[in-house]
Write a protein that binds this DNA or RNA. Structure first.
Lengths: 127, 127
DNA sequence: CCGGATCCTCGACGATACTG
DNA sequence: CAGTATCGTCGAGGATCCGG
């Protein structure tokens, strides 16, 4: 029992949880995924994100992007033209997070069938 | 139906998102982290989880554990004694998810200061 | 000790309308 | 096109009580 009572400092713990919750909301991962692509980060227009992240509303996309910007994970470039043109891009920091998140994404893709199978037997066992 | 650019099949996309949303809720990752530790999976009692995952309510812990059980990520062992004793443990599948999640956890610990700094300047710039 | 049942709050989120 | 503002809904989640 060399034990496991190694909690990091309460402050670290809090921040870790905070960032984790930020990342683990309904849309953030999907937006990061969309900005990151496999070919590295790219500039993506607001409207394109709206199309590609299926089901997201304008409001939530804006909000998600603001949070990512605040945390230094994306940059926002505004072109002074009409109609307006705004492009978003992952920063190196955001890119590195995308890489870390990628592990979870891959896990899901690799194990989704197994998960579904478990759900089936679990549900069957109590109907 | 016309193809969706470079996305994987719509069906796969939907499944991935479904499992992702399950995993990316407020408590799941924290509970998995707590069950996983670095020394591999362990049996943990309900009450201990309640203490270690700070801030979680009894209700949400129960719910989270049921979902994890349903997805085949944890096992639940009930000891027929009074007072009741229930232990939870990651399955190999749950363990593998824990490993993937670990990457995100490490990213947060490594970059938390940078994130905090960004937030500071962002907030300062509009106050 | 574990966890189900209930009640209640509150914020996430969507829909819509409006502006530069 | 890219937001902001406003309103309404809905369910996540906390608090509490109870029962095995």
């Amino acid at each position: 029992m060399e034990s496991v009572d190694r909690k990091p400092s309460a402050e670290t713990e809090a921040l870790v949880r905070e960032v984790l919750e930020r990342v683990a909301d309904k849309w953030t991962l999907l937006v990061i995924e969309e900005l990151g692509g496999e070919a590295g980060p790219r500039d993506v227009r607001f409207t394109r994100l709206l199309e590609r992240v299926g089901g997201i509303s304008q409001k939530m996309l804006t909000k998600t992007l603001r949070q990512l910007e605040r945390d230094g994970l994306v940059t926002r470039k505004v072109f002074p033209v009409v109609p307006p043109r705004v492009e978003y891009r992952l920063t190196p920091l955001g890119e590195s997070l995308g890489a870390a998140v990628c592990g979870v994404w891959e896990w899901v893709e690799r194990h989704k069938d197994e998960v579904r199978r478990h759900r089936g037997t679990y549900d069957a066992a109590r109907s």
